[in-house]
C-alpha cells in the first residue's frame, strides 16, 4: 500500500477537501477545453451554413466506415477507462494496469485508423495547400471544408496522443504501487480527460462524416 501517496498537502484541511480541489481544478481545465473546441465547432457550423453544398461534397469524400469504426473504438476505450477508475477505487492494482493498457491499445488503434484516413487524403490530393486538387465544382470551398477537417481532427488526435502518454505514466505509477483505494486521483483525473476527448469525437463524427449523407 502506498501510505505516502495518501498524504494531504499542507494547504488542505483533509483528504476530502484535497480531492474536491483536484476535481474542480480538472473541470476548470476541461471547461477551457470545451471553449477551445467550441470555437472550432462554431467556425465549422458558420461555414457549413454558408457553403452547404461544398461541405456536403466534402463530407461525402470522407470514409464513413473508418469514421464509424473509430467511433466504436473510442467509446469502447471510454468504457475500459471507466473500468480502470473502477479498479482503482477498489484498490485492484493488476486490474488497473490491465484496463489502462486496454485503453492505450484502443487509443492507438484509433490513431492508426486516423493515419490511414490521412494517408488516403494525401493520395487523393485533398490536403489543403498548394497540392490540393479537386475536379468538381466549389473546389475552393471544398478545400475550406478540408481545412476544418484537418484542424479539428488533428487537434483531437493531438489530445489523443497526449492522453496515451498520460495513460503510459499511469501504468508506470500503478505498477510502482502509487495508488490504493484511498488515493487514485491521477487515474480519476486522466479518466475525465479521456472521456472529454471521447465527447469531442462524439460531436466530430456526425458533423464531419454524417451530415449530407442523405442524398
Amino acid at each position: 500500500m502506498a501510505e505516502a501517496a495518501a498524504v494531504v498537502a499542507h494547504q488542505f484541511d483533509d483528504a476530502e477537501q484535497q480531492r474536491d480541489s483536484v476535481s474542480l481544478g480538472m473541470w476548470l481545465f476541461l471547461i477551457q477545453e470545451i471553449m477551445f473546441f467550441g470555437g472550432l465547432f462554431l467556425g465549422y457550423t458558420v461555414y457549413r451554413y454558408k457553403y452547404s453544398e461544398a461541405f456536403r461534397i466534402g463530407s461525402n469524400e470522407l470514409e464513413l466506415a473508418w469514421g464509424g469504426i473509430n467511433t466504436v473504438v473510442l467509446i469502447f476505450s471510454s468504457l475500459t477507462m471507466a473500468l480502470a477508475v473502477h479498479a482503482a477505487q477498489l484498490g485492484k492494482r493488476k486490474a488497473i494496469v490491465a484496463w489502462l493498457l486496454a485503453t492505450i491499445l484502443l487509443g492507438s488503434v484509433f490513431l492508426g485508423i486516423k493515419g490511414i484516413e490521412y494517408t488516403h487524403k494525401f493520395e487523393h490530393h485533398l490536403v489543403p495547400g498548394p497540392g490540393f486538387h479537386y475536379e468538381g465544382s466549389h473546389a475552393r470551398q471544398v478545400q475550406l471544408f478540408f481545412s476544418f477537417y484537418f484542424v479539428m481532427t488533428g487537434m483531437h488526435a493531438l489530445h489523443m496522443v497526449i492522453g496515451v502518454g498520460l495513460l503510459a505514466v499511469l501504468v508506470w505509477m500503478a505498477q510502482a504501487g502509487k495508488f490504493d483505494s484511498a488515493y487514485y486521483s491521477p487515474v480519476e483525473m486522466t479518466g475525465l480527460y479521456w472521456h472529454f476527448v471521447d465527447i469531442v469525437w462524439i460531436f466530430l463524427f456526425p458533423l464531419l462524416y454524417l451530415l449530407g449523407r442523405d442524398r
Binding site: 479518466g191 465527447i199 456526425p206 458533423l207 451530415l211
Partner: peptide, 17 residues
C-alpha cells in the same frame, strides 16, 4: 444528429465522468 450527439455526451458526462 446534434440531439443524438448531445444525448451521448450527456450519458458520458453523467456516468463515465
Amino acid at each position: 444528429a446534434l440531439l443524438i450527439a448531445g444525448l451521448k455526451a450527456t450519458l458520458v458526462i453523467l456516468y463515465f465522468m
